[in-house]
């Protein structure tokens, strides 16, 4: 079994003075694996990603990246350490070209040769990036924009990528493309922590599945087994957790 590269340990987190959204969440993510968080709205899936990427400081608990405690570090520091976060919805810079978007992913890289090598690598992973290199990112289809976001996220060769609802708003065909690309990332050794409303589809391709309820993992296990678990439907539909 590969080593754990990202670990959320007993994380309690919330917004302002409101009750915590995450109430003791523990999730390990291993290199070359896709871990999928599913659950009803308000279960804390996106909040878990925000804590992991430094967008939200936890009230207690720890975030470990490659064994190092990175709890509360800002997103740009975590990015430099190898953790990239692709936000929910379309987060390309719409009035900038695909080229400019991708280059922004490697903004902290000063070495031009390394930057060019990374550009070639992401173009190979996501051919549409090369095909639409000079196009305004805002003019691309939803699926293409998502691939540009993935390419941007991979510019710094992260060891972990956090994906928040990557198939949101996409038609089935583009959804398939997006899931294929996630699989491709996994095969290059990247660890992926995935939040997805399309639970069954995501669990079919993930390695580990975690069903969140009220801010903690209620059920977890091999993703394919979880996809067939009857409790999933009940939890995911918002009913009371099965005992």
């Amino acid at each position: 079994m590969s080593e754990v590269v990202l670990s959320l340990e007993d994380v309690v987190a919330g917004y302002g003075r409101a009750a915590p959204v995450l109430r003791g969440l523990t999730v390990p993510v291993r290199a070359g694996e896709v871990v999928c968080l599913v659950g009803p709205n308000g279960a804390g899936k996106s909040t878990a990603l925000k804590v992991a990427s430094g967008l939200l400081a936890p009230r207690s608990g720890r975030v470990l990246l490659d064994g190092r405690d990175v709890t509360g570090l800002p997103p740009q520091r975590l990015l430099a350490l190898g953790l990239a976060h692709v936000l929910q919805g379309h987060s390309v810079f719409r009035e900038m070209t695909v080229a400019e978007n991708v280059r922004l992913g490697g903004y902290t890289v000063r070495d031009q040769a390394r930057l060019n090598a990374r550009i070639e690598a992401v173009k190979e992973l996501f051919p549409v990036v090369g095909e639409r290199w000079g196009s305004m990112a805002g003019l691309l289809s939803g699926g293409q924009q998502k691939q540009v976001e993935f390419a941007r996220a991979l510019m710094l060769e992260p060891s972990v990528v956090l994906l928040d609802e990557p198939s949101m708003g996409l038609d089935p065909r583009n959804t398939q493309v997006v899931f294929d690309r996630i699989d491709l990332m996994r095969r290059t050794g990247v660890a992926v922590l995935l939040v997805e409303q399309n639970a069954r589809r995501a669990l079919e391709m993930a390695d580990l599945g975690c069903v969140l309820d009220l801010g903690r993992v209620h059920i977890s296990g091999p993703a394919r087994e979880l996809a067939a678990d009857p409790r999933l439907g009940r939890l995911y539909l918002g009913g009371a957790p099965a005992s």
């Binding site: 990015l79 810079f93 903004y107």
Partner: peptide, 11 residues
């Protein structure tokens, strides 16, 4: 375009 996003990318 998006100051927060730019900052998160290291700008």
């Amino acid at each position: 375009e998006d100051e927060d996003k730019a900052e998160s990318l290291g700008v």
